[in-house]
Design a protein around this nucleic acid. Structure first.
Lengths: 203, 203
DNA sequence: GCTTGACTAGACCGACCGGTCAACTATACT
DNA sequence: AGTATAGTTGACCGGTCGGTCTAGTCAAGC
């Protein structure tokens, strides 16, 4: 059960890093192998295709994001909306650090793949969509807690969570296209003001 | 001055269509030529590189968008914010029609290229950024008019225009990743509620 | 010592990539 | 008619793509 080598994980990490900083199509299997210090034969021992590796990369990216960003930003040591602000601050810091290290703002690893591959690879599209769904679910919980605490007026929690995440993705894409992390500082806080009112049920 | 043939334009149109429905990397020069009914030699008579063609494609996409969408949606036959609603409705209708025709929601032609190429091609990134700047400028005018008319409370017009466009891009990307144009119907209207208040100058 | 099976090594495959080039044709001007 | 030039053609280039395959290494179980 325990893997005999770390080759598989090295391939995933290598691909995650390269694809995130470039793009799916721009990073070949050979480059992924070289960066991982692995020969091509080993690659296809662990993964049947570049596509399958990419699915594993999406899982790994989500795990990494959860551990490094979500679990910390959304730790319940402060009110829900303050956690959201911390999340935005941490995102800004990370993107800024990435730009200083690589010269480029990488944006969102999921949004990038969604934009590049959604029309070309249904399997990957669904996986990216699943990641977004998971994020949306977490955002729902947060908003529900905020409403509960009276920090947020009643809203359509489902729709508002989706809208906030969409805004976040859009801000990241805008900042990436301007290659300027400070776009996040300027625009991201407005995420907290987005509301989709509850659909009127009782007339 | 007047071109002797339409070959150049056919190449641009072909590339615009193919790249928009797939991606930059997924569409080769050979495919662009074939779809345009042009031989490869002619391609390189008109464009020194695929990159240069892509810059022309961005210009053409912007022109098309302006003529088919912006000029109609923002025609001053109704109040500013109502024009914005028309813009969102037209976008939804177009994306829905594209999905019915191709099976996929293509999203935003500029956002797609920005996400795919911003870290890899500085020239294209700048061009995409210029398109976004132009859109933002139009949005500023609209918001200014709305404030003037009293339909909108005073806001930071610059920042609010940027935020609204970012939200729009994010909604398009979310809908593309879900391959569901109706995401636009659900989320897009909240664009009208986004506000970034004026930075306090007079204390 | 022998077998097994996970893992590695790297040569190799056909297809395609973006791009080049020399030859050719059609048109326009003198 | 002659010439220049814009446009066209398709063969061709080296390189890279994702992926295959055979041979071999190595550690564990018997």
């Amino acid at each position: 059960m325990v893997p005999a080598t770390d080759t598989r994980q090295r391939l995933i990490d290598s691909a995650r890093e390269l694809i995130y900083s470039r793009s799916y199509a721009d990073v070949g299997v050979a480059a992924i192998c070289e960066h991982a210090g692995v020969r091509k034969g080993s690659f296809y021992h662990f993964f049947p295709s570049k596509q399958e590796l990419t699915l594993a990369v999406l899982d790994a990216s989500f795990l990494e994001m959860k551990q490094q960003l979500l679990d910390r930003a959304f730790a319940p040591d402060r009110p829900p909306l303050a956690r959201l602000e911390r999340f935005l601050d941490m995102t800004w810091a990370f993107q800024k650090q990435m730009k200083e290290a690589t010269g480029h703002m990488p944006g969102c690893p999921f949004g990038n793949l969604g934009a590049e591959l959604s029309t070309r690879d249904e399997t990957i599209r669904r996986k990216v969509d699943a990641v977004f769904s998971s994020l949306r679910s977490g955002m729902r919980d947060l908003l529900a807690e905020a409403v509960q605490a009276g920090d947020l007026e009643p809203v359509d929690i489902d729709a508002t969570a989706a809208a906030m995440l969409a805004y976040f993705e859009g801000v990241l894409l805008t900042a990436k296209t301007r290659n300027d992390p400070d776009v996040l500082k300027q625009l991201a806080p407005a995420m907290l003001g987005i509301r989709i009112p509850p659909q009127a049920e009782s007339a």
